Amino acid sequence: ASPIGVNSFLWRASLDTISFMPLASADPFGGVLITDWYSAPETPGERMKLTVYILDRQLRADGIRVAAFKQRRDETGAWVDQPVEPAVATRIEDAILTRARQLRVSSSAS
């Protein structure tokens, strides 16, 4: 039996996919990963934060949902919320699903 409450391939793939961001919280039973704010070196005036929800015990395309948040520094140096293109979350979801499928294939091959 799996010690986590959600699909283990989706869980591991989510951790792999967002590993470049600092993790604020990980709940393997509820299937929720929350990152801390992350600024890419090439865009220090912008930062992103993600919440990944694993919604199913099965490896399914609708078993994962990503919420992305973005902020930009204004002239005073304060962080201001910015709209995030829906494509950003979709790209991350697709990357997680691709990685989850790779993990499943490699686990069945061994």
Rank of each mutant, 00 (worst) to 15 (best):
T43Y: 10
R57V: 12
L59Q: 09
S107N: 12
V80A: 05
P41W: 02
T17Y: 01
S110P: 08
A61S: 14
E75M: 15
R101I: 14
T90M: 06
S25K: 08
Y53D: 10
L50S: 06
Q71A: 06
A95C: 05
A109F: 05
D74S: 11
V105Y: 12
S108D: 14
D62P: 11
S107R: 04
N7C: 11
D27Y: 00
S106D: 15
S19N: 08
A78H: 08
D36E: 13
S2C: 11
G5P: 06
L59R: 13
A26P: 03
G30E: 09
S39A: 13
F69I: 00
S2Y: 08
A87R: 11
R73P: 04
S19I: 08
T76G: 10
W79Y: 10
D16F: 08
V66M: 07
L55F: 02
A109D: 00
S110T: 13
G5H: 09
M48T: 11
R12N: 12
V84Q: 03
I18F: 01
I34M: 12
A95N: 05
P28K: 02
Q71S: 07
D81H: 11
S39I: 09
W79M: 05
S106G: 07
V66C: 03
E75R: 06
W11I: 14
A61N: 12
I64R: 04
L55G: 14
A1L: 15
P41M: 05
I96T: 07
R104L: 12
D36Y: 06
D94E: 10
E75Q: 12
A24Q: 11
A87S: 14
T43P: 02
A67N: 14
D16T: 15
D94P: 06
R91K: 15
V66P: 04
V88T: 09
V66G: 03
L23Q: 11
A87F: 00
M48L: 14
L97M: 10
D27M: 04
D81Y: 08
V80E: 09
L97E: 01
W79D: 03
